[in-house]
Amino acid sequence: MNLTLKIWRQNGTNDKGRMEVYPISDVNPEMSFLEMMDVLNEQLIEDGKDPIAFDHDCREGICGMCSMFINGEAHGPGRRITTCQLHMRSFKDGDTVVVEPWRAAAFPVIKDLVVDRGAFDRIQQAGGYVSVNTSGNTLDANAIAVPKKDADRAFDAATCIGCGACVATCKNSSAMLFVSAKVSQFALLPQGRVEAKERVQKMVRQMDLEGFGNCTNTGACEVECPVGISLENIARMNREYLSASLASAE
């Protein structure tokens, strides 16, 4: 299989960046997309050129590191997959494949396809935790029963891998799906309920400070999310924030 790759090259955050064309031949359809990129990079290094930088680590769809905008979609064509789970069998001989980094003001490009997603960490640091000490001297794990349905929904929200595909996909670069997943996980569990009001306010405040856009409810994030985080979480966060704002003293 032969392909034409159009890949974004950007030498550092302040570089303007440009698309460059790389032909690649003998692509095996069983390769993952990142393995195809490995092969391309090996060629570039052998030719004395600068290899293309891209984020990746676990290569099994859980670490959330890989992050390519391929042919107009976050993580490329296909549903419920990360870039590392995209295989070359999704493409045809002769295809042109356009590869870009996540694009958002809150995710500055570090190099080529690598972006800085520190904004996500800072949102979590703003309140994405339960304030308990790590002493181990807490209640017995079974002291509070949690309805299975709530536990399952909390789990579903908690499976977010923090890849940023929601932001990359959203026409407004909104981080609502990401933030709402964390807010929901804790809001659904009695352990997280205690400080739910403060949490949602702090996290939304940080989200706004980071320069993400607003949610237009296009639903694109849910479609492109590799782990299928539901829009219900955004609604839940809207609800949580509304009641927290109405109840707050300020």
Binding site: Y129, V130, V132, T134, S135, G136, N137, T138, L139, D140, A141, N142, A145, V146, P147, K148, A151, D152, A154, F155, A158, Q185, F186, L189, Q191, G192
Partner: peptide, 25 residues
Amino acid sequence: EVSANIIDQCVAQGVPFARDYGGLL
């Protein structure tokens, strides 16, 4: 010996372990 504390700690932190219909782990 400390294995049991881990589960208590994680539940307190909001780790959504699998539960059965009675709401217990």
